[in-house]
Design a protein around this nucleic acid. Sequence first.
DNA 1: CGGTATCCGGAATGATACTG
DNA 2: CAGTATCATTCCGGATACCG
Lengths: 135, 135
Amino acid sequence: MARTDEKVRNLPAGKRASYTPETAAQGVQNVIRVLEGRWKLVILFQLFGGQVRRFSELERAIPGVSQKMLIQQLRQLEADGVVARIVHHQVPPKVEYHLTEWGQALCPALDALLIWAEAAPSDLRSRLIQATPCD
Amino acid sequence: MARTDEKVRNLPAGKRASYTPETAAQGVQNVIRVLEGRWKLVILFQLFGGQVRRFSELERAIPGVSQKMLIQQLRQLEADGVVARIVHHQVPPKVEYHLTEWGQALCPALDALLIWAEAAPSDLRSRLIQATPCD
DNA sequence: CGGTATCCGGAATGATACTG
DNA sequence: CAGTATCATTCCGGATACCG
């Protein structure tokens, strides 16, 4: 499924839903609102690939995050239907998080953003692509 | 160029640059940082398709924006290499803005986000897709 | 373990006035 | 016309303490 090919000639409109510049901007802003937040993407990438993690695992996997922020961002992602929450009623409590099917589908879209970043002119790349340890 | 096809099985890694969950999250965050800001996407969609607009045109085309915010967001987009600025030295002053080639290339990536939004489960779509007048 | 409640500082945004 | 400068406000994230 090559969605963005020759048929899109420069505007992400004209197909499917038909956007005006205003509605398209709004649409993307809504998506960004779902994704923005200091820790959301980090959480997402911890969960991609069908992984299931409990709260404390995420807390340990994400250095620097506070409980407040972690739960806040998780709850927002949950409210937005990206992340699902499973409560195991037991002592000690156990709560697990994983991506919804729709959340998983974010991957190609984020990938498109990374591809765009990689295409940055060389004088700008330093701000977008960090020297990965595996360079 | 179908970039995100069967080869990406769920992680946006494994090809090209090879990302870890951490670097991928960072990469996407950097892109979002470029795009976030109350007015940036609105500006972008005013400029997509090779359009050239002067300052006052953008000001009129974007209801609610203040001069301060408009110039601030334009300058940031310019610094990020997404927008280019042309100053015509004349009286009265005339300054025009348009997308760089790289800025234009954002279109398919944003399109991918819109496609994702359109795939939202029906109970969530209302928050992502606004009832377009053209529905 | 997996949260909630409260307080605080800084950044992002907005309103308004002024200028080359 | 295309900005700058200043001030007020709102919002986000962090620190800390407490709870079922």
